Computed example of a mutant assay.
Amino acid sequence: MKVLLVDDSGVMRKIIARSLNALWIDEVVEAGDGADALKKFGDGTGFDLVLTDWNMPVMNGLELVQAIRGAGHKLPIMMVTTETEKEQVLKAIQAGVNDYLVKPFDQEMLTMKLERVLPNPQSA
């Protein structure tokens, strides 16, 4: 399974990547902002999931989600962020986010969210 992990914090990317690798995710491609993520995403081939922060420089997570959905990609996208206001959550859902994970989170919460957005995740 291949995941695009987008966060402007290198420390947060390492924490999340480690958590993903402890599960069934075997490949994590990291990006520091939405623009970098779009370059690495390319045509989307081979990616099973996008995990993105909201607040980032250059291109934020919401803009990234809109770009991916605007190009017609249907893969699951999860917003991983500190944004918890109802209005922000609704914006993310309207943009095409499949689920929302609030920082800080633990391994159990990450696993539960991944199992909700990925069909048969451990067999992928």
Rank of each mutant, 00 (worst) to 15 (best):
K2A: 11
V6Y: 06
D7Y: 00
D8P: 15
G10L: 04
V11Y: 09
M12V: 15
R13S: 05
R13P: 08
K14H: 10
R18I: 00
S19N: 08
S19R: 02
L20Q: 08
N21Y: 12
L23S: 03
I25E: 05
E27K: 01
V28M: 03
E30V: 13
G32C: 14
D33C: 12
G34Y: 13
A35M: 05
A35G: 13
A37L: 07
A37S: 09
A37R: 11
L38W: 03
L38I: 06
K39L: 12
G42M: 01
D43K: 11
D43L: 13
G44L: 00
G44C: 01
G46C: 04
F47V: 14
D48C: 10
D48N: 14
L49A: 03
L49P: 06
V50N: 02
V50Y: 05
L51Y: 01
T52H: 06
M56V: 10
V58F: 09
V58K: 13
V58P: 02
M59L: 12
N60Y: 14
E63I: 08
E63C: 10
L64Q: 07
L64I: 09
V65T: 13
A67T: 11
A67I: 14
I68Q: 04
H73C: 02
K74V: 12
L75G: 10
P76V: 01
I77L: 03
M78R: 00
M79T: 07
M79Q: 06
V80W: 15
T82W: 07
E83V: 04
E83Q: 14
E83Y: 06
T84S: 15
E85M: 08
E85R: 12
L90W: 11
L90R: 07
A92T: 04
A92C: 12
I93N: 05
Q94D: 15
A95M: 01
A95E: 02
A95I: 00
G96T: 02
V97W: 00
N98S: 11
Y100I: 00
V102Q: 08
V102A: 04
F105Q: 00
F105N: 00
D106C: 02
D106K: 02
M109Q: 12
K113L: 08
E115H: 13
E115I: 10
V117M: 05
L118V: 14
P119A: 15
N120V: 00
P121N: 05
Q122H: 15
Q122P: 05
